[in-house]
Nucleic acid binder design. Sequence first.
RNA 1: GCGCCCGUAGCUCAGUUGGAUAGAGCAUCAGGCUUCGAACCUGAGGGUCGGGAGUUCGAAUCUCUCCGGGCGCGCCA
Length: 585
Amino acid sequence: MKQELEQLLLAALARLTGNVLPDPPAASAVAVERTRDAQHGDFATNLALRLAKAARRNPRELATAIVEALPASSLVARTEIAGAGYINYHLAPAPYARELAAIHSQGAAYGESRLGKGERVLVEFVSANPTGPLHVGHGRQAAYGATLANILSAVGFDVAREYYINDAGRQMDILTLSTWVRYLEGCGERLVFPENGYRGDYVRALAQKLAAAVGEELRRPAAAVLANLPADAPAGDKDAYIDALIERARELIGAQGFRRVLELALAEMLADIRGDLAEFGVVFDHWTSERAFAESGAIDHALAVLEASGRLHRQDGAVWFRATEFGDEKDRVVVRENGQKTYFASDIAYHLAKRERGFARLIDVLGADHHGYVARVRAGLIAMGQPGDCLEATLIQFVSLFRGAEKIPMGKREGQFVTLRQLRAEVGNDACRFFYLMRSHEQPLDFDLELAKARSNENPVYYIQYAHARVASVMKQLAARGLFFERVQGLAAHALLSGPQEQAVLRSLTRYPEIVEQAALNRAPHALAHYLRELANVFHTYYNAQGFIVDDTPLRNARLALVLGVQQVLRNGLALLGVSAPESM
RNA sequence: GCGCCCGUAGCUCAGUUGGAUAGAGCAUCAGGCUUCGAACCUGAGGGUCGGGAGUUCGAAUCUCUCCGGGCGCGCCA
């Protein structure tokens, strides 16, 4: 609808260009918007206000000229000029009826478009280190990333979902060591757990699995483990201590033994994360291992590309990337003095590889604490000859959990953070996903467990699901009365849908494709969540104002066609959000 | 110190190429079930859009400044 009105406007402007208007305005400037107030019609444009200066005419005069130049259309019942120079469109009934028929004929596909033109997009999200279970912050990133991918896919982008497994580097070594120390404890050795180790209970579970797999094969006496180590915190340096301990572990159980513990811990953690996400309705097309990526030589390839373009230099025994040439505040190390490549090197190589795999657009869904990192990776991409704007980062703000008014403390250090699994078990997947998505990702989220669990009017999830279930209930009632819905008659009788609530439902219903597009372009799934609430609201209002199962058969079928349209759109929207649409509740 | 994000009703938040009288939910108050599901609906009150200045026909939206909150600034990942 909206696009057709914009086409009409463009045609009008084309006619005026040369006489009334000096230059043809940019097509992107020609926009029609939904009105907020029904008094102003269905759609409006402020075009005359925008062009008035360039045309050197007063806005109302220009608006009159535009309206007179508009081609005739069956869409528009009438136009009027209002306020300072707005052009308001009052739509004819026909376009609404056509749109309702489209909902019925397209079903689950209604709302899809070809906006993205098949452009290949890689959405990378969650990518949490496999050193512990996912927590509630990852849950938000998972819900956001999965939903954004769904929405982009719906509007015609060719989307791939990817999880990057940070399975190389020191954090994995620390997890491995933590597991081994717990395993030794389980064997009966007495040692103090390192300050910098992973303290969560899940590490004990890993240790038990290890014991089940190897028995006491990897047991070493505590005295040998602890001999001649630097002091741990608080007296000493906890980083130096744990690095020494990792080194000691490698000496005592050998590189192979260490590797064996690492593989077991990694496999267990990944299985946990994968299962957790799958239960949450979040699935990935690719799980990319950093370790495998590094072993493939891809980092060396990226460094060679940088070297060839003259962006590297050596200083203090390390290799540096000249990030300052791209606006960064300082140059960045890519190969350390000890010969190890940095995380940054691996990450720009990874992003280069994404491009080389054929993705036009790279969307990284990151925690808000990563914001300083984006510019650097972009600089790396540009230095390697890639367009800087192909990389887009959406930063997801943090989640605070509340139980009513009481804030739940979260700290990895104490090992008492709330996991996504715990959260889902407590409030359920539907409420969980909806609560994550109903706020802008740019806004810190206060997640109230009591509210999410409440089966009450305070809970917006049920409000929307209830509308869906109510329609299902109406259809059951219809069957119970021995009646049947006649779709063809219902759609043909659209002229009977003239009541104010019916008009409001039609207006809201037909906004859906626009909302999906807007949510996609703005990377804003929450816009869809808000819309669904509004649609549920106009439906509930209609439900309370009118009976649907009336004796007048054409009227009954027209109303049923309308509410079935509402049900379809609710179902489609909830599907994008990853929330179920129950027939009864 | 430098950088990024945020500040809108009592509370939680929508409000994106600047646009008409700034909107929802919750809470409060007043109403609505003999009817297809009351997990619903109708109505009312509630605002210096953090403060100030600027840009212009027009600013919650753009710019500057100040105040307040969150987060980043490693040869860690």
